[in-house]
Amino acid sequence: MSAAYDVASGEAATERTASPRRPWPALEIAAAAAWIGAGAITALIEEAGDFGYTQEFAFLLAGVGGAILIAALVGRAAPALGRRLRHWAPWLILIAVGSAGWELVTAKLELLPMPFFPPPQAILEVYLDDYPRLLESLVASAKLLAVGYLFGASAGFLLGVAVGWSQVVAYWTHPILRFVGPLPATAWLPLAFFLFPSSWSASTFLIALATGFPVTVLTWSGVASVHSGYYDVARTLGANRAFLVLKVAIPAALPHVFVGLFMGLGSSFAVLVVAEMLGVKAGLGWYLQWAQGWASYANMYAALIVLALGCSSLITALFKLRDRQLGWQKGVVRW
């Protein structure tokens, strides 16, 4: 919310100063220069060891610098792009300086112990040479996570509504949730691998379990905390039980449900990686383990970056979904 206001006020400010003459986008040009400079360091300074793809990496850095430069110039005409670039320019500079520093302490000066700290071009090499296997791992992880998460989230949601609504269900479920729920899902791993026919189904179950617990508890508390006045209103207007559940309890509980979905997503990542490291013979967790076993640390970093991007994209997607579903909350709560 506050970010949105910043953007709005920033817009107003630039509009005002821009009326006589638009200032040069100095920060953006500095960012472009930093990337091109990092490219030059990579290309021109002699390497201490023998690394592949150094030139390609240098071109990549310089190319990003060129793209930033073009965006900065176009941004003078396109205010939306210009604002975004200006906002991220300090980060772009930091990343360029960081890449150059990383390049220097690894490939150029070899200040860090070598197999453990590969230079950036070694990671680029992994993406260019080993992408089929990485992609396969990403797809395998995504499949396992999607099936487990969707199962867990749906089951947790339904159970949460049932517990919040029915005293009988609450009576039988509450002690089980209290006893079993706080146990980390990974603690079930040995048992699950033994009980389930395949390590894949065991992992799906564990991911569903890790997701389901927070979703159940938060949905339950959401349904239980619905203002009783809403039910009174709906009942006097002729609502039956189904209407009270579907059109009153669930929409009113939705903000809580989303908190549960976020918590569940976080714990599902943890279970996914652990399960793939210990049992499933595919996926990014398996790739990490495999790369570490062969001491190919560049592959490990490459997989970690893919994993981080994947997880953060999923969180972002869930945020987007929440904003769409709970747009009405904007005036009610601050976020």
Binding site: G229, D232, V233, T236, P251, A252, Q329
Partner: peptide, 18 residues
């Protein structure tokens, strides 16, 4: 309750999501 006897409460209790 029956919709032929509708209540208007002290709080409007409008559903905020609608």
């Amino acid at each position: 309750p029956d919709p032929s006897r509708v209540v208007v409460f002290q709080d409007p209790t409008l559903f905020p999501w609608r």
